[in-house]
Design a binder for these strands. Structure first.
Length: 484
RNA sequence: GGCGCAUUGGUGUAAUUGGUUAACACGCCGCCCUCUCAAGGCGGAAAGUACGGGUUCGAUCCCCGUAUGCGCUACCA
């Protein structure tokens, strides 16, 4: 029996460049499941495709996982008892087990080239076959024929001998029992001609050797489970428990793709989605805490506490950017100011702002946080606090040169003398005094000040604006219009 | 085409072992707050649970069929 007191799960991406948001959710579910059950979360790199290898992809993957906050217990860089955690470094292990399968007669050599297979498929489809697949002809090769071909140096693959006229059935933790007819299962290639294993083979060997108790992965793997079950059986092993999570979809319900927006976790982070918000949002795509739970904002810790595999949904979930934006805005509004500022500095700098006055940047972030959905919107909002010239249209100029505006500026300017530092709280009473002194109130009081300070008719409350600009700058801008 | 999986408002989801005016959130609309814009508060429209059959006193929930969608069908993962 699988040892359920010692739960081990893995996230096993192939390093093809970036961390797909669907992959991130798979990683998250694995992580939550592991932490919830006091188990181990393992990162394994499935780099068996030499063609698709991308330079730096692994480093990027690890970095992204880290910035999201999903720490793994075993894997690249940190090691562990069951390494190596790169499949490309486990070739001798696969070789050993493929030998076993070969000698047991559960696998066999096949010498067709990729082109020949392609041709075979085409022909089958033309002839109206229900399903095109390898014709299993190499099963009939004699031992002598095989040895002869190998001696001649003809390239070969090793295929799984799928039993015919049978059924494979397994229990998916999310979907229940799934049954598939083995006549529809191809004699899958286990070892490619370049000596690397295929996913199907390596995955089974590694999951067993690494003592993975639960395989939690995307739905796209569901129909290949029989191949894996057959392998476990042939090797005399017990299969891991399986859970296939639903896909994340585009608004048109096709599989989430690049064409319809961002799919790379890195892109979301770069645009200023907070890691916590991303995690929160994605956790709720295909999972929910169930009855009696109305809130939607959950920290990673809370998710760990609440997460169970049984509550994972069975159908695909559309990635709703609007809701992500709302959730991210919620996080931005309530986030720790220091942490928020840290995230904002590089964004401001990249946008061309001078960030040497970090305190000012912080004040800016504080002022704009209720206005933005994501951090890359800060620069646009920050503009008004950094411009040295106020540009106005004719109507606005007229308003500022009016008699009442002048009186407001004059009064305000005088009152400002008594101040060293303007705070959000102290500016409002100041304007009240101006109102008392001049008798000007409402729009006629506030709008001139707003225009003078920002050049805009809309924006945050004036106390906030004044606080961010600082006393000197407020004074400078007011005087500028007083003397206009 | 074959096989597999799925199907509750536009979207994400809820609904104790079949009995609810089918709940919550995003979005949308309106009102309030207010110098403005956001934020916030309050309220509203929006599904009778894909469709058609069963089973049952009663079905979103169980069974069958159809439709639709998605996935798989590689010496890719």
């Amino acid at each position: 029996m699988t040892d359920l007191t010692n739960i081990r799960v893995r996230f096993a991406p192939s390093p093809t460049g970036y961390l797909h948001i669907g992959g991130l959710r798979t990683a998250l579910f694995n992580y939550l499941f592991a932490r919830h059950n006091n188990g181990k979360f393992i990162l394994r790199i499935e780099d068996t495709d030499q063609q698709r290898k991308v330079e730096g992809a692994v480093e990027n993957l690890i970095k992204t996982l880290k910035s999201i906050g999903l720490e793994y217990d075993e894997g690249p860089e940190i090691g562990g008892e069951y390494g190596p955690y790169f499949q490309s470094q486990r070739l001798d292990i696969y070789k050993k087990y493929i030998e076993q399968l070969l000698s047991q007669g559960d696998a066999y050599y096949a010498f067709e080239t990729a082109e020949e297979i392609e041709e075979m498929r085409k022909l089958q489809i033309e002839q109206g076959a229900a399903q095109a697949m390898y014709d299993r002809s190499a099963r009939n090769l004699t031992k002598e024929q095989v040895e002869e071909k190998i001696k001649q140096g003809i390239p070969y693959v090793i295929r799984l001998k799928v039993p015919q006229n049978s059924e494979v059935s397994f229990n998916d933790l999310i979907r229940g029992t799934v049954t598939i007819d083995t006549n529809l299962v191809d004699d899958q290639v286990l070892m490619k001609s370049d000596g690397y294993p295929t996913y199907h083979f390596a995955n089974v060997i590694d999951d067993h050797l690494m003592q993975i108790t639960h395989v939690i992965r995307g739905e796209e793997w569901l129909t290949s489970v029989p191949k894996h079950i057959l392998l476990y059986k042939a090797l005399g092993w017990e299969a891991s428990l399986m859970a296939h999570v639903p896909l994340i979809l585009n608004p048109d319900r096709t599989k989430l793709s690049k064409r319809q927006g961002d799919v790379a976790t890195e892109d979301f982070l770069r645009k200023g989605y907070l890691p916590d918000a991303l995690v929160n949002f994605i956790a709720l795509l295909g999972w929910n805490p169930g009855e009696g739970e109305n809130k939607e904002i959950f920290s990673l810790e809370e998710l760990v506490k609440l997460f169970t595999i049984e509550r994972v949904q069975t159908s695909g979930a559309v990635f709703n950017l609007e809701k992500l934006n709302w959730m991210n805005a919620e996080y931005i509004k309530n986030y720790d100011m220091n942490k928020l500022a840290e995230l904002a500095f590089p964004i401001m700098e990249n946008a061309g702002f001078d960030i040497t006055d970090r305190e000012k940047v912080k004040r800016v972030v504080f002022a704009v946080r209720t206005y933005i959905n994501k951090l890359d919107e800060i620069p646009v909002q920050a503009e008004r606090y950094y411009k040295s010239n106020i540009e106005l249209n004719e109507m606005q100029k007229e308003m500022l040169s009016s008699d009442s505006s002048k009186r407001v500026f004059e009064s305000l300017s005088n009152k400002l003398n008594g101040f060293n530092v303007i705070t959000t709280e102290s500016f409002k009473p100041l304007l009240n005094e101006v109102q008392k002194e001049t008798g000007i109130k409402g729009k006629n009081l506030f709008m001139p000040v707003r225009l003078a300070l920002t050049g805009e008719e809309h924006g945050p409350e004036l106390g906030l604006v004044a606080y961010v600009l600082g006393k000197d700058e407020v004074e400078r801008r007011i005087k500028m219009f007083l003397n206009m």
